[in-house]
C-alpha cells in the first residue's frame, strides 16, 4: 500500500492492480481453503470409510458379507449376526467389565499420575529429568516376559481373574503417559494465576482446586481419552489376568481369530462403538474449554 501513496498520478492503474492483486489473493485463499477442506475430507474419509464399511457389514445378512463387489449402500438390514454375537455367553458381562476396568484405570491413573505431573511441572528437584526418563522406560519393558510372574503374583494375592487385577495392570501401563501429559498441561497453566490466588488468601490446596484444576481440565480430559482408549483396547494383560471375568477385547480375541468374517465385523463394530461414544462425549467437553486455556 505504501507504494500507492507515494506514486499518486498512477493511482487508477495502481488501483486496478491492487484490485487484481486482491482478487488473486482471494482466489488463492479460496483455492487454499478448498485444498484444506479437500485434505480434511480425505483424512476424515480415511478414518470414517472403514468404520462405515464395518458398520454396514456388521448389520448385513451373512451371505451379503461375501458379495463381491461390495455394495456401498446396504441392500438389506439384518441384526442377526450381531444378535448372535451379543447373546453369546459372556459378551455383555465382558462389555461391563471393560467399562469398569476403563473407569477404574481412569480414576487410578489420574489420582496417581496427575500429582506426579504437577510435581514435575511446578517443582525443580534433583533427578527430575532422570525421573521423566525412568517413567517412560517402564513402557519399553516388554510385558510378554512379565505375563507368567504377574499371573502367579495375582493368583497368590487373590485378585487374579478380577476387574481389579486388570485395572491395576492398565494403570501401570497408562501411568507414564498420564504423568507426562499432565505435566505438560500444568506447565501451560500460568504460574502467576496460582500465585495471585495464593496472595488473595488461597491455601496451596485450594489454589490448586479452584484455579489450576479448572484451567487444566481440558488437558486432563484429553489425557483421560488416551487412558480410556488404552485400557479399552488392551488385550495382552487382560487375556493373561482374567479367565472368567474377561474384558471385551480378551473375550473376542480368541473368538475372532477363528470366527467367520461376519462375526469378526460384528465384534469389531461392537468394540468400536462404545469407545467412539466415549470420545464424542469427552470431545465436546474438551473443545468447550480448550479455547480458554490456550488464549
Amino acid at each position: 500500500m505504501t507504494s500507492i501513496a507515494r506514486d499518486l498520478p498512477a493511482a487508477p492503474r495502481a488501483d486496478r492492480e491492487a484490485v487484481a492483486a486482491r482478487q488473486a489473493r482471494a482466489r488463492r485463499r479460496l483455492l487454499g481453503r478448498g485444498l484444506l477442506y479437500a485434505a480434511a475430507v480425505l483424512l476424515a474419509l480415511w478414518v470414517l470409510f472403514p468404520i462405515y464399511l464395518i458398520t454396514i457389514t456388521a448389520f448385513s445378512p451373512r451371505d451379503a458379507v461375501y458379495d463381491y463387489p461390495k455394495q456401498l449402500i446396504p441392500g438389506t438390514f439384518s441384526a442377526e449376526t450381531m444378535r448372535f454375537f451379543v447373546d453369546a455367553e459372556g459378551v455383555l458381562g465382558a462389555l461391563w467389565n471393560s467399562v469398569l476396568v476403563a473407569v477404574v484405570t481412569l480414576i487410578f491413573s489420574t489420582l496417581i499420575g496427575a500429582p506426579a505431573g504437577y510435581a514435575l511441572a511446578r517443582f525443580a528437584f534433583r533427578g527430575r529429568d532422570a525421573f521423566r526418563l525412568i517413567v517412560l522406560s517402564t513402557r519399553a519393558f516388554p510385558i510378554v516376559i512379565l505375563s507368567i510372574p504377574l499371573a502367579v503374583s495375582f493368583i497368590e494375592w487373590g485378585i487374579y481373574d478380577t476387574v481389579w487385577s486388570v485395572a491395576l495392570m492398565h494403570t501401570a501401563l497408562a501411568l507414564p503417559f498420564t504423568v507426562l501429559i499432565t505435566s505438560s498441561i500444568f506447565i501451560s497453566v500460568p504460574r502467576d494465576l496460582e500465585e495471585a490466588a495464593l496472595t488473595l488468601g488461597c491455601t496451596p490446596a485450594t489454589a490448586f482446586v479452584k484455579v489450576v484444576l479448572p484451567l487444566a481440565l481440558p488437558g486432563l480430559a484429553a489425557a483421560s481419552i488416551f487412558t480410556f482408549v488404552l485400557s479399552w483396547n488392551e488385550v495382552f494383560a487382560a487375556v493373561i489376568l482374567t479367565l472368567r471375568e474377561r474384558t471385551l477385547p480378551a473375550l473376542v480375541l480368541a473368538a475372532l481369530n477363528q470366527s467367520p468374517v461376519p462375526f469378526r465385523l460384528a465384534a469389531g463394530w461392537f468394540m468400536l462403538a462404545p469407545s467412539l461414544i466415549f470420545i464424542f462425549v469427552i470431545r465436546r467437553y474438551l473443545l468447550g474449554l480448550w479455547g480458554r486455556v490456550s488464549r
Binding site: 499371573a151 502367579v152 493368583i155 497368590e156 487375556v239 493373561i240 472368567r244 480368541a254 481369530n257
Partner: peptide, 22 residues
C-alpha cells in the same frame, strides 16, 4: 472358555507355579 494356545499355556503354567488353580 475358549483360548488361544499362547495364553492357554501361560495360564496353566502360572496356575501350576502358584500351586493354586481354577
Amino acid at each position: 472358555i475358549a483360548e488361544e494356545i499362547g495364553p492357554f499355556n501361560d495360564r496353566v503354567t502360572a496356575e501350576a507355579q502358584a500351586g493354586k488353580g481354577t
